[in-house]
Design a protein around this nucleic acid. Sequence first.
DNA 1: TTTATATTTGCAACTCAGTTGCATTTATAA
DNA 2: TTATAAATGCAACTGAGTTGCAAATATAAA
Lengths: 126, 126
Amino acid sequence: MGVIRKTQALEILLAEFENDSGAISAKELIKRLDSQMNKTTIYRVLEKLEDDGVLHSFLGNSGIKWYAKCNGCSKSRHIDVHPHFQCIDCGKVDCLNISMKIPELSGREVVASQILIQGKCEVCSA
Amino acid sequence: MGVIRKTQALEILLAEFENDSGAISAKELIKRLDSQMNKTTIYRVLEKLEDDGVLHSFLGNSGIKWYAKCNGCSKSRHIDVHPHFQCIDCGKVDCLNISMKIPELSGREVVASQILIQGKCEVCSA
DNA sequence: TTTATATTTGCAACTCAGTTGCATTTATAA
DNA sequence: TTATAAATGCAACTGAGTTGCAAATATAAA
């Protein structure tokens, strides 16, 4: 199920990702957009944007869901599998523009990988 | 807070990890040991075993908590930071006995990393 | 422009992993 | 054997995320 209609909710959500270079958690979006739309709508629009390859999602530190813009993803293929960095001080999450080699595992077939690196970001480690 | 007393719950839980070479989710342990102890006890004992460096924990696919035996961890240091492999068919999770190099990130200080590789295990890919 | 209709939204109620407070039980040391 | 600190069970809670359904709305057809 892809994005079909240009709704207000969709545009407000997309604007959040335009203004934010890093990743944003669903939780944070619910807090930010509380007065503008229902949390159910947020979850549903995010899901559609992910299906359409506009956003990608991953799980942060505490198992909550984060979203960030995709680079070169499509409905069928999410090539945007990169590590994410979460600051243990301020909680900010960024996509890392590097590729990490996933080793061959004999007998096993690798399909995907999720890499979360934790530490102190540029601001918090200064 | 470390493990202090040799209680029945502790021994039953440790036995589960003796008989299982891979990782076990808290959820699975609650199911397995339902008749033997309360889920609160399971969560609390697991937490203590982790504090003591007997087990380590990480988050699986869907954000639920998994535990596995440590190799060479201690109260103060968890050196057992290795990738985990989760089978997308049968759900089984294993610790991978390989080390993956985390790249230097300029301006950022890396403290920890969580790597979850997803795919088909030896049994399910055969 | 109006209308028909499928999609989207809000709301409330729910799910489910994990947590907390507190009274009771139990392992351990004196 | 007893005192007591630690561990346990239970019930109620938390919080992210989901679901069903009625109401609202974007879009295409007339």
